[in-house]
């Protein structure tokens, strides 16, 4: 975890109190959103358990003895949901959520440009090849979780840049 780059706000005590001033709060929430996304990207996590997250370094800075309260965490997560980076897996209880530090559309674009760069258009590859294959090693989407990959590909499909297909239990995709 030592490689995580904390923003300057993380060392700033008021960062952990929701600011009543609207303008200040806007900046504060923005900072929190980008911190959550960069943290999950660096940790390669795709889900957050709200209760556990309270004690994770993300919301709890032990060095300055400040932690974000439950309410504030929910405020931040809700803000992320609005920008499309987060989805509740349990919409009512709001205990578990999926974080997408890139939206499916962004992932789709990333994958498509990678395909183009390797001139793999009009070829079919399996999903496994895309995320776990040797060729994709070093790309950002290497190790991407399946559910997110599917969503990314579906967004490409809706733009008619790819087509999902399945044969014998294994899924594949064809890029155009």
């Amino acid at each position: 975890m030592a490689d995580i780059e904390w923003p300057w706000q993380y060392q700033f005590p008021p960062f952990f109190t929701i600011q009543p001033n609207i303008e200040t709060r806007k900046k504060q929430i923005e900072a929190w959103c980008s911190l959550v996304l960069s943290y999950t990207r660096q940790q390669k996590t795709y889900s957050i358990d709200v209760r556990e997250s309270q004690n994770s370094p993300l919301f709890n800075n032990k060095a300055i003895n400040r932690k974000l309260s439950m309410d504030c965490i929910l405020t931040v997560l809700e803000e992320l949901r609005k920008t499309g980076h987060l989805e509740w897996t349990d919409n009512k209880t709001k205990k578990q959520c999926l974080v997408m530090w890139r939206t499916p559309e962004e992932w789709g674009k990333l994958i498509y440009s990678w395909i183009c760069s390797r001139s793999m258009n009009n070829t079919v590859c399996t999903l496994f090849e895309l995320t776990e294959g040797e060729e994709s090693e070093g790309t950002e989407f290497h190790g991407l979780e399946n559910w997110l990959l599917l969503r990314a590909l579906k967004s490409l499909e809706s733009q008619e840049l790819a087509e999902l297909m399945s044969f014998d239990g294994s899924d594949g995709v064809k890029f155009f």
Binding site: F12, P13, P14, T17, Q19, T24, K27, R66
Partner: peptide
């Protein structure tokens, strides 16, 4: 901007802005 803790209310220069 404020920093609200059990120790009370503290005000910091508004670095956010």
């Amino acid at each position: 901007c404020r920093d609200e803790t059990v120790e009370g209310l503290r005000f910091y220069s508004n670095l956010f802005l």
